[in-house]
Amino acid sequence: MSRLDFDVAHLLAGLMVLVSFLMLYQDRLYSLLNTFALHALALALAVAWQAQIQDAPHLYITAAIALLFKAMIIPYALHRLIQRLGIHREVEPVAGLGITMVLGLALVALSISVMLPVTAAAGTLAREDLAFALSVVLLGLLMMITRRNAVSQVVGFMSLENGLILAATGARGMPLVVEISVAFSILIAFIVIGIFLFRIRERFDTVDVAALDRFRGDRR
């Protein structure tokens, strides 16, 4: 494998980590969705590159799904949903921006220090790709727990899932990657439909104690 193959793969995977950080500090839902589209675009490029260097044409399907479904259809559908349902357009963070960013940095450091030693046998390409992928997964989790809005939690979940697809394509010759990415797309489509059907305007956690009691169901 040439040096260039290697560098481009890392560049694209690193780009995903960077965009994950960008998503952490977006405070408007629309700009969050645009950033997510960028994330999915980076994923599509990274997967297409893997398809190229691994000589695995079926991965182009995964790349195409990422490009069409995640970078275009889903952000567009969520834009429309936010308009139709009149969802609050501001992201409500649970923790402060500074703390979230520091936590994010710590998670990236953690995933690199965990993944690099254990994957020593797995080949250089897979190794560092996996470290980046785990970073993206953990940053997605961080985003899910530091946001209150349903839509931004969903975006967090989708970025987490992008990290998983990156990991699956990085594992050389892994079967069923295409099927798994299709299964994930179905899952995401269901989540978006779910938001629409259930007309979830806000996450249910509010500071209104009466409302909390009602939702806990058990405290009546």
Partner: peptide
Amino acid sequence: ASVGIALALFGTILVYL
């Protein structure tokens, strides 16, 4: 459950590796 199955998939990928 989505987060759960997402983590399980990461584990599955590692087992494959």
